[in-house]
Amino acid sequence: MTGDVTSGMTAGKRARAGDVATYALLALLTAFFLAPFVWLLSLSLRTSTEVFLGASRLIPDVPTLGNFERILSDPAFLTYLWNGLKLSVMGGGLAVALAIPAAYAFSRLRWRGMDALLIAILAVQMISPLVILVPLYRWLSALDLLNTHLTVIAVYGALGMPLAVWLLKVAFDAIPVEIEEAAFVDGASRWIVLTRLTLPLARPGIASAFILAMVMNWSQFLVPFILLERDGDWPVSVAIFNFAGSISASTTQLLAAACLVALIPAVTVFVLLQRMIVSALIAGAVKG
């Protein structure tokens, strides 16, 4: 931009050439990132005959919604969707509920060992759920806590909490302390200030943390796969894995439809709210 001023036409031309190059690269990248979605949609709209015709039927001659009809009229599949929704929402809610008081303490109180604990909370995110589930499975089995959604929700709460603490701390940091001070002068307790004043102001941050946790839970495979043994308890991520193992090539279009249904809720929520979530993530990334 400044180049335009200093060296006139050539810089302007160079910038426009740069725009063309930018678009060319973006077009290539778009093809890569879009292709799997397009192909999945294409397969899910085909009849089995057209599945065998490969890429020549990218746009099916006889498109059908029959695959979706079959998937969505299966009561078992609806149960998987419901289970997935229930576990994701409640697990995300738990993660945020646990994170709020901790993040508030990190943001507003000054105490010894604070920085060390904040780093520890970030560091535990690096531990693979697999490492945790190996011993956890045995205990939960001994305590007869397998095969219950509450256990999965508790584990989701623990897995989602660290990121939520971080995002909420950043959100609280952005709220001026002076606003709270005024309330303290009026004699309000910290709890009142938090619930009446700070939390409403931190709504975008809280929503972002909740949605991120929820979307991650929706994607979780390992935790429900290990902790839930009964078919009727499974969320959709486990169900499509099992479904994929049981189908033949002639039902690829059904699997495609099932995959699409499984990813649509997460992608839709994320796309609709991405502006808010991305700015929360960017705020977190800058501070980190």
Partner: peptide, 10 residues
């Protein structure tokens, strides 16, 4: 970002 939120299994 949409690709990011696709479940790993999917």
């Amino acid at each position: 970002l949409a690709a990011w939120v696709v479940p790993g299994i999917a």
